[in-house]
């Protein structure tokens, strides 16, 4: 009893200010926290900076409009990833029209964009094999390798059960491994990736 009473007394003597963040505050917070991640997510998946820019701008516009649906806690970040994924899919469907409209700008931006794989025969071999996978397989493997998401986070982002993610990831790994074998690409444990027959 004494303890409870004392804590109430202590409480009354402090000067808390009421924290009532409005939607703008919440949006600003999630925007700042995820901006870099969404830039990277879009940049890794779009063929041009213009496409990536469109995806980033549209993603945050959708987030702003749907602030009511923003989940609390760590799920907020995954929810924004999910929005970006949907926007990206939407964007790809309209990509042809887009290229016609902004071809010149895209060419200019492509110079800035760079493509490390172009300068590396070994990486190109991997990239080509990776490109033969389905969109879903590529996305799952990329979310793990590039965004560093674990199964639980991917499940939250995609609205799937963890078990479903586990199984899909297993199958994606299997298909990627098979495709690498078929293309006769071997890897060393380190970063160097070399085609078969050229291994040291």
């Amino acid at each position: 009893m004494k303890r409870a009473f004392a804590s109430r007394i202590e409480w009354r003597t402090s000067r808390w200010e009421s924290p009532v963040p409005d939607d703008t505050d919440r949006f600003e917070a999630v925007y700042r926290a995820t901006y870099d991640e969404i830039i990277a997510y879009a940049g890794r998946r779009c063929d041009s900076p213009q496409d990536a820019a469109d995806v980033v701008a549209e993603t945050f516009t959708v987030v702003w409009r749907k602030m009511d649906e923003l989940p609390p806690g760590a799920e907020a970040r995954l929810w924004v990833y999910g929005v970006a994924r949907n926007v990206l899919a939407d964007h790809r469907r309209s990509a042809l029209r887009h290229q016609a409209r902004h071809r010149e700008l895209d060419a200019e931006m492509a110079d800035l964009y760079g493509d490390p794989a172009d300068h590396n025969v070994e990486l190109n071999a991997i990239a080509q094999v990776f490109g033969t996978l389905s969109d879903d397989d590529r996305e799952l493997l990329s979310l793990v390798a590039w965004e560093g998401l674990d199964r639980k986070e991917i499940a939250t982002m995609l609205g799937l059960s963890r078990n479903a993610v586990r199984i899909r990831l297993y199958r994606a790994r299997k298909r990627f491994s098979l495709a690498l074998d078929e293309a006769d690409v071997r890897s060393t444990p380190a970063t160097a990736i070399v085609p078969a027959g050229r291994a040291q």
């Binding site: 940049g43 890794r44 990486l123």
Partner: peptide, 20 residues
């Protein structure tokens, strides 16, 4: 079949924006 860590090592260099 390759382990997930091995696949991650293969894929990371492909990321246009680095993961590190």
């Amino acid at each position: 079949m390759k382990a997930i860590d091995e696949i991650n090592e293969l894929l990371r260099p492909l990321a246009r924006i680095g993961t590190d």
